[in-house]
């Protein structure tokens, strides 16, 4: 069934002319009506699909459940935020989506293909930057491209220089992380992710270790950098517990419960952009999320 949906979507079939196609695909009547009712946009496959993911940590003979049957989807051009109480397993979930760790059960799919290990199509930005202190900014960004055997050193360098320029770090190529401010370090982290030209960007509390004024403008800059027609990034998944930041950036919010975490809400946040943090609608969303988190 899924494969049939993909085919339909890719051929961009007009719904008024679909009867013959349905017959050809031999889809049963009930299913045909259901799909037609959902409309063409819903026929798109999710870029990221988390399906019934559970995670247990084992401590000696005990099993500690962390995530319980978590499911969520992220479609093209969606900015999805995962939030929940501290220690509920948000970052663990992001690491599973990145292919950095395996779930106890369930599956994560990238364009319908299971994610079982890290891939260059999914890049990640970390809360504490994770830069190599003995490498310059340029070398740190190039390091992210180490696994790309298909690129020459020259191509890697050009990609890294372009990514540094895009993140406003032109001129900082030969500066070491220890000489940079927190905001600049995170820009290097973003550049390292962008150089991969990934389709999915995962961000684990990317602004939480910055002071509020720095985070305020960096948030806007990074959002406009990620969500624009020239960017290869198709979807962004962010972990955050900053409610205002969530309402400012997200198209969709997935709220997890305290550990063991399960999904308590999956909300479409349809405020118009740019979002006015002083508007009544913005406050209402902030209130709503606080009430879900409290």
């Amino acid at each position: 069934m899924k494969q049939q949906e993909v085919n339909i979507s890719s051929q961009e079939i007009e719904f008024s002319q679909t009867t013959e196609v349905w017959k050809a695909l031999e889809i049963d009547t009930a299913k045909r009506q259901e799909i037609t009712a959902r409309g063409q946009s819903d026929l798109e496959i999710p870029i990221i699909s988390v399906e019934h993911v559970s995670l247990d940590y084992r401590k000696e003979k005990e099993q500690l459940p962390v995530l319980v049957d978590v499911s969520l989807t992220a479609y093209k051009n969606e900015f999805v935020t995962i939030t929940g109480p501290s220690g509920c397993g948000k970052s663990s979930l992001l690491r599973i989506i990145a292919g950095l760790s395996k779930p106890t059960s369930g599956v994560v799919k990238f364009k319908e293909q299971p994610v079982t290990k890290p891939t260059t199509q999914i890049a990640m930005i970390f809360q504490n930057f994770v830069l190599l202190p003995w490498r310059t900014a340029l070398e740190n960004v190039m390091f992210g491209l180490s696994s790309r055997q298909d690129l020459t050193e020259e191509e890697k360098k050009n990609r890294a220089l372009k990514a540094l320029d895009e993140t406003g770090l032109s001129g900082f190529e030969n500066v070491y992380p220890g000489e940079l401010s927190g905001g600049m370090k995170q820009r290097v982290g973003v550049a390292r992710a962008l150089a991969l030209e990934p389709e999915v960007l995962l961000m684990d509390e990317p602004f939480s270790s910055l002071d509020n004024l720095t985070a305020e403008h960096l948030r806007k800059e990074i959002y406009s950098l990620l969500i624009n027609p020239t960017s290869p990034i198709q979807t962004v998944l962010m972990v955050s517990h900053n409610v205002e930041e969530i309402v400012e950036l997200s198209d969709k919010v997935v709220v997890l419960s305290a550990r063991p975490a399960h999904v308590v809400a999956d909300l479409k946040l349809d405020l118009p952009r740019p979002r006015n943090k002083k508007s009544q609608e913005f406050f209402q969303w902030v209130d709503k999320l606080y009430s879900l988190l409290a």
């Binding site: 401010s181 905001g183 600049m184 910055l210 002071d211 509020n212 004024l213 720095t214 985070a215 305020e216 403008h217 960096l218 806007k220 943090k277 002083k278």
Partner: peptide
Amino acid sequence: VRAGQVIGLVEVTGGL
């Protein structure tokens, strides 16, 4: 004082 803080200040002041 870092550049990012001054940029943030200007953006917030202008936005309000």
